[in-house]
């Protein structure tokens, strides 16, 4: 059986909130290392990969592999009933029909309990190759959100170009064009505002802004976001969580004919 308790429901609420508009039905794959999720969006352009490691929970218990087939719209409805600071416990039997969720507000001695019906989801699992990326950009997640939102007003695509001078986001549309350039920036007193560019070779790729703005719904999960780029492979956008847990998005590039 699965039993996994989070000190605050916040993490799980925000993670589900971040992916629910991109993927609808997906399996939460539980085993002794934690709870993982991999799902593609309907048009097979983007892939979500989430890992909540066992260490993120206390306690965490899962003796065998359990796949929880969940409709994320339904899960969102249930999670809306959880206070951000409630403790959240997920429980399921070995071959479950339901996922049991318990929210506890310890200060108020209030306990709420929900059973969410599960479904059988036959999902294709993709192998994500280990990639040495040509460029890895770490930047404030709020800044990335602002850039994607601002450029969305200009065009439906953005070209991300990483060079030794910095990273440039540029868009060209019917009304004109725009660009934002960020240079490496490491303020000692404000680590959350760090912009770091690790570059093995210059790279430029074009992506759909519709997907990138969608990924930015994960912004509340982490102050920093990591963009990993290599020529002709999907972009990886990573929101790192405590203890090595993560929420990653992969986005296929736009390719010239």
């Amino acid at each position: 059986m699965l039993e996994a308790r989070l000190d605050t429901a916040n993490l799980f609420k925000s993670a589900v909130d971040a992916i629910k508009d991109l993927v609808q039905d997906c399996n939460f794959d539980c085993n002794d290392s934690g709870i993982a999720l991999q799902a593609m969006d309907n048009s097979h352009v983007a892939l979500v990969s989430m890992m909540l490691k066992a260490e993120a929970f206390s306690p965490f218990r899962c003796d065998r592999n359990i796949a929880l087939g969940v409709n994320l719209t339904s899960l969102t409805k249930v999670l809306r009933a959880a206070g951000r600071d409630d403790t959240l416990t997920l429980k399921a039997e070995d071959a479950p029909d339901v996922l049991n969720l318990v929210f506890e507000a310890t200060a108020q001695d209030r306990i709420s309990e929900y059973d969410l019906k599960l479904m059988d989801i036959d999902q294709e699992h993709l192998g994500i190759p280990d990639t040495e990326y040509a460029a890895t950009i770490s930047m404030p997640s709020a800044e990335f959100k602002r850039i994607t939102t601002d450029l969305m007003a200009m065009s439906e695509s953005v070209t991300i170009e990483a060079t030794k001078d910095g990273v440039k986001f540029s868009s060209t549309g019917d009304i004109g064009n725009g660009s934002i350039t960020l240079r490496q920036h490491t303020p000692v007193d404000k680590p959350n505002e760090t912009v770091e560019i690790e570059l093995s070779e210059p790279v430029a790729l074009t992506f759909s802004l519709k997907y990138l703005t969608n990924f930015c719904k994960a912004q509340p999960l982490s102050n920093q976001v990591k963009l990993c780029l290599s020529a002709e492979v999907p972009l990886m956008v990573e929101y790192g969580l405590e203890g090595g847990s993560y929420l990653r998005f992969y986005l296929a590039p736009k390719i010239g004919d």
Partner: peptide, 14 residues
Amino acid sequence: KVKQGSIMSFFGSS
């Protein structure tokens, strides 16, 4: 003219 790629052409089934 640019075309949107598919994630499945990069990541194979495992």
